[in-house]
Each structure stands twice: as structure tokens, then as C-alpha cells.
Amino acid sequence: MDIVSKEIEDIIEVNKLTKRFNGSLAVDDISFTVKKGEIFGLVGLNGAGKTTTILMLASLLNPDSGSATVCGYDILKEKDDVRRSIGLVFEEQAVDTYLTGKQNLDFTARMYNLPKKVRAKRVADVLNTVGLTDNANVRVKDYSGGMLRRLEIARGMLTYPNLLFLDEPTIGVDVQTRRYLWDYVKRVNKEMGMTVFLATSYIEEADYLCNRVAIMDKGRLVVTGTPEGLKASIGENIIFLKLSKGSEKNFIRLLQGMGYVKRIEERGDLLELSMKEREMGIPDIVRIARENRFIISSIKSHRPSLNDALLHYTGKKIEEE
């Protein structure tokens, strides 16, 4: 069966989507669009509402209010069309461990009514691209964690969908496999033009893969932008310092007066400065402090990461694995 594709600019359009579980808001009035061909990341802590959002977009869970179209189809009224157009890799294992890897993929291919001729070749192709050809006839219960994730991803893209949802695709896999999977996702996005919707709590993953990210916190979308844009929005350079002489309040006042600093925050006894310009760095701050008789006991600087952006926009920090 051919995958029916509509000519559309925005492959996902979400409008005020809301979902409650037992009275508490899991997804709270979110709206966003995903453009065709991009890798879009939904970033947030566990429990932020990412999986709920994906399940609603995949038509597996009905929203309490709001609407969305996926690949041009309404998630409530055209469920079968939505399902036919997407691939979905679940956060948790969703393969049958009593079947072999190949049998699992064959099962999926049949469920999507892929014709017999296409089926065998497609299964062999995806097994090859995720590097599981040698283990195709091994039962999945004997797979390692990394092999399992690779199989899940192979399954998600078996139908060569227009849109692939990945929910925490590299959770629990080693560094090597993770890098392999990332490059694989990049490749299918580039070569096949497959749009990818990635939900992750792993900041580096979003930074490496995504063209645009949306930060989600407690069911709400906090900010959307390119990773570079989000980093730049909190300053070009970030400096942490600790004073051993002089009051912090006075030092903050002094710096604010000079107009180099975009933002100052106190984090415990550390001061976090976001500099407006990339060139402004440690030497400048040290000079200013010395001239005004402050003594700095420690100082370090780094380029803002997506983690800093997340910290800034949600007031929390995602723990790195």
C-alpha cells in the first residue's frame, strides 16, 4: 500500500493541545509546528509531558482539548491515515521477545500491509542499516540493550514513514551505540527527507541532532528555537566567579553599570554572568575587579550550552547521564 502523502509545509501542527491524568495536567495548552524535513526536538525532564504529547500525536491517546494535524491528517478524525504515515519508536521496549529480530520486523511489515515483494527486501535493508544482519535470526530476548534499541529504531522506520517519532531513542545504550544511532538518524533525515520528531531528556542528543528544539516543563512549552539561538539568547559567554573580598551586591551593581553583562544570577556563593559579547571574558572581569578592589578567588568561563539554556528557561538543570 502506498503511503499517501499530502503536500504540506508543516508536517505537524499542534493547536492548544491539553491532556489531564486524574485531574493533573500532563500536557498544558501547547501549540507548535514542525516543518517538513527538519529534526525537531522536544526537550524536558522526565514527567514534563513529552511522551504524552507523542502518544497524542500518534493518535494513541485522545487529547482532552485542542487539536493537531500530523502529515495533514487530523489526529482525532483520521487516526488510520495518521498511523499509516508515521513511524514510532517507543521509550519502552515494544518488541516481542519470543520472536527473532527478523520475525519482529516481518510482523510489523505485515501489520502495515507491505506487499510480499517489498517486505523481505525492506526487512533485510533495515536490518543491514542498523547492523543487525548477523543477529537477525536470534531471539530478541537474547539481545543486548543496544541491539534492542537498534531493532526498535529499525522497526520504527520499516515503512519509510514521512515522519518518525523517537521517544528517548538512546536511553540506556552505550556511548558508541548512541553515536551510531545519532548518525543513523541524521542520515535518514538527510537522504530520505524523513522528518524526525525527537523527545529527549538528554540535552546533548538534542544539541547534536536537532534543527529546532522546544523546551517543555511541567506540561507547558517554555521556549522554541534553534539550539544556537537558544544558547545565544542567554549570552555569548558565561562566566562563573567567586569573590573572596568585597560584597557581591556591590560587584553586581558595578558590572550592571558597565553594560557588558547581559544577565547576572547568584547561584549559591557563585555569581553567574552572561556576557553580551563573545570577546568579553575572564581577563576583562579580573581587570574590572582589581581596579575596584574586589578580589576574585575563583573564576571560570564557558560557551553557553543547551544545558545552560534549559537551566535558564526552566530554572532546573537536567542531570547528565
Binding site: 488510520d80 491515515d81 498511523r83 515494544a94 518488541v95 521477545t97 501489520m111 522497526r155
Partner: peptide, 17 residues
């Protein structure tokens, strides 16, 4: 069992009634 082991999700996301 399928629900417990996650397989049910894979079945239900397929465009099959």
C-alpha cells in the same frame, strides 16, 4: 502479557482496526 511487555503498543499503533 502484551500490554505488560509493551508489544501491545506496537500492535495498536499500526493502521489496523
Amino acid at each position: 502479557w502484551d500490554k505488560e511487555f509493551g508489544f501491545l503498543k506496537e500492535v495498536l499503533v499500526a493502521p489496523v482496526n
